[in-house]
């Protein structure tokens, strides 16, 4: 029985479910679209994880043939993109800078690596979603850099948190390609624990940025 992986998944499942309920309660009390979308993001993420964890718990292996969890995880990425889009101001959406050219370049390199070493279709879907998310968050970071308006710091923090989430996802996927067994020495688990912490931190950070 892969114990560390199971514990890791169960912790992440508990955290995402907690955040889903938290953002759902925030939506019911404040009626803001961002909270509804965040609730959907966490809900989809936890649903995919529930299937993944159940599979691991019952059959002591992870799903390897087809895209069950991937369908809801891709949906969760789309919801995160919608959060970012809803969150951005009109002038922020139109903002462009040279640093943004880095986003497709880095994502393309990683995509090629995943296509060579892993499944092409799911890599294509996940990397496309991550490219859009990282584009939005880097654009937000560049736009709000040096601004002294109310809420600028909170928005920078939100975009930074999302960018860090993307980086952790990439680290996780890369580490999964070089699987080192079910032990804490495996970097996969370090990244996954940090990813769980990032997911937990995202809700209060988003709550501060959206405001009342």
């Amino acid at each position: 029985m892969p114990r560390i992986e199971l514990i890791d998944n169960l912790i992440q499942l508990a955290v995402t479910l907690l955040c889903c309920v938290g953002s759902g309660c925030l939506y019911l009390s404040r009626r803001k679209q961002e909270y509804f979308l965040l609730c959907c993001f966490y809900g989809c993420f936890s649903l995919g994880l529930l299937y993944w964890t159940l599979f691991l718990l019952l059959f002591r292996e992870t799903p390897k043939f087809f895209y069950v969890s991937e369908t809801v995880w891709i949906s969760s990425f789309i919801f995160l993109q919608l959060v970012q889009y809803t969150f951005a101001r009109e002038d922020e959406r139109a903002f462009r800078c040279k640093a943004l050219h880095l986003v497709p370049l880095v994502n393309l390199i990683l995509l090629v690596q995943y296509c060579v070493m892993d499944d092409v279709f799911s890599s294509l879907l996940c990397c496309s979603a991550m490219t859009i998310i990282s584009w939005y968050s880097l654009r937000g970071l560049c736009f709000w850099r040096g601004r002294r308006e109310t809420g600028a710091r909170q928005r920078r923090l939100f975009h930074g948190c999302v960018l860090f989430y993307v980086a952790m996802e990439y680290c996780l996927w890369t580490a999964s390609l070089f699987w080192q067994g079910d032990s804490l020495a495996n970097p996969y688990f370090w990244f996954d624990f940090v990813l769980t912490a990032t997911l937990l931190a995202l809700l209060p950070i988003a709550e501060r940025a959206v405001g009342k």
């Binding site: 529930l50 969890s69 891709i74 789309i78």
Partner: peptide, 13 residues
């Protein structure tokens, strides 16, 4: 789009 994907994903899961 996001909603349709999510609903389909939820049903599949």
């Amino acid at each position: 789009i996001a909603g349709t994907c999510a609903l389909l994903g939820a049903a599949i899961t």
